[in-house]
Nucleic acid binder design. Structure first.
Lengths: 186, 186, 186, 186
DNA sequence: GATGAATGAGACTTCATTCAT
DNA sequence: GATGAATGAAGTCTCATTCAT
């Protein structure tokens, strides 16, 4: 996936950096835009990322990887409920910090295999954490695995609707998640 | 608001019907599109609805009115918590039945005065219902008035992310809201 | 030309008043606009004035008539040069006071017979005043009748290019005309 | 300003040629029109010239440059009055040969920096030539620098009002300017 | 590989005019 | 006669994508 030639690799990185900036600004990702800001030809951007979705997913990939990592660590945590809650907190924090993550999470259809793979892993981890917590009787039977991602997206969305600026977001999101978790806890 | 002439009134209704369909399909409202589907000239649509937002808000208006009505009735309910919960349920059901409602609710800036008026009413009702419930000690202090709309939008969003088709939506939304309400309840 | 029925006559007047306002504001004359401002249906405006040009010419008519009147009086003036200069001054003052006049004067093709008639009269008067002035030897042979209207339009145009607002216009136009007249005088 | 690639340069020239034709025909410059006539996509025209004004100013640029050049030469002329008169003649001839020039001159707001620069230069030259002529006592104090551009535009406008076709224009304009100059001369 | 010019569909909007009521 | 709703051509502009250089 990562190109061979050194300059190509440099371009690839640069495009990603620019895309990250645009996403963080809330600007819709347009490949032309990215190219202009990156000081590259449109064609170059298209060569590296055939569609805007591909670019968006690539932008989101590191965050997805980090979440997967956190989740894996959480699986070794002794207290199932704490592990579960901590994981969801990570997810929500990620989504609220990174608009790319909400978009990618909310979609069923991915364009990059890597995205699907990571989303599957995260789903699986969520499923396990939920199962473990449920086994200890800490979780009510109201939700199942398929609800986790939607609920996290919902909290992120609520946060965006509520917040004036990026600064408010983290505390708001935590507050909303806490309320939800209390609802889930036995 | 509704025009006087019979043919104009018919067109107005027709445009609204078509817009409703598009909204329900999830298609972004474009006035040209509406015109084409309605078999009307673009100008006609623009005459009735100067912008897509105006049309969207008009589509959402009946639902907003219904919600306001329900809410007013809820204020007379004896049990504050039940009234509060019932109102939020209505709101979420509305949003999940009608995508227009989520969009209109999630925006701060309205183009129709009527929309602002209704949203203000609904907000006021929510505020009162929340205050009454809180006064009886039924509600934790985690949330305040400004959280109600975002949370309802969040639940609707979560529902859309989760659901395969419109059919799943109502039960899912209720389930999510119930969980949230349990988190809010003392 | 003037309609029979009293209400029709009233409408006719009203349309004209509104059109006058728009012209004075520098707004391009649009029959829809006129109708809206007049609180009348478009159809009514169209009935009275089939085209924007017809309306514009009608707006300009009183000024044209006044100019014709002034000119006729000027023909009886004893001093041919003074009469000539005074007439051109009137014309320029009219054009600079009334944007409709420049437009109507600058066009060859009129839509109302009355306009053509008045423009012809004014032309004829200009021709005579010029001839009389020339006969006394007061005017250089540089210009002929066909130059009078263009030159007056040119001065009006120069004035509009120069001026910040309507207030500056009259003195500027007079200054420009004086210079021109000095150039014409023997 | 001119693009690097050969085909792009060709298009740029072609667009300019077409625009020139439209301007000469008296057709208002519309980018769509230009594209159609040039057999190019609209986007191509927009890429080269973001607005109709930008295109119009680019069309006018060569004439403006030539005028600036003439003016600079005129500053070295021994006879201030002749130099002044000759410069104004050039200006008027330019405006009457090229309708773009009148429009660009009559506007205060330019979109291309180059246009502003050239107009400023020409203004400065006019100011100096006028000052020099006035210092020798050759010019009446009736006009000042701010009148030069409006007066030239006025003469051009008068010429367009007068003339049947392009052929008449040059002699007419010269005649009008001569008369004006006589009015300015001591 | 990199470039960025070209493309043209399509969205948005305005407006002169017609014609049903 | 009066009304104003309807029309749709035409203008403006944007943007995703292709392809010649």
């Amino acid at each position: 996936m990562t190109p061979q030639r050194k300059d190509a690799a440099r371009n690839w990185e640069h495009i990603l950096t620019v895309a990250r900036e645009l996403v963080d600004e809330g600007t819709p990702l347009q490949l032309n835009d990215v190219a202009r800001r990156a000081g590259l030809g449109v064609g170059t951007v298209y060569r590296h990322f055939p569609t805007a979705e591909a670019l968006l997913e690539t932008v989101a990939t590191p965050c997805l990887e980090e979440l997967a990592g956190c989740g894996r660590k959480g699986l070794t945590d002794d207290d199932p409920w704490t592990a579960f809650a901590a994981f969801l907190t990570k997810v929500v924090e990620g989504q609220v910090t990174d608009p790319a993550l909400v978009k990618v999470s909310a979609t069923t259809h991915d364009v990059l295999p890597r995205t699907t793979e990571l989303k599957t892993q995260i789903m699986a981890i969520g499923t396990q954490l939920l199962a473990r917590a449920r086994d200890t009787g800490a979780v009510r039977p109201d939700v199942d695995d398929a609800d986790l991602v939607p609920l996290m997206c919902g909290i992120a969305y609520a946060t965006y609707v509520h917040s004036a600026g990026p600064a408010d977001r983290l505390p708001t999101a935590r507050r909303y998640l806490d309320t939800l978790l209390r609802g889930l806890h036995t």
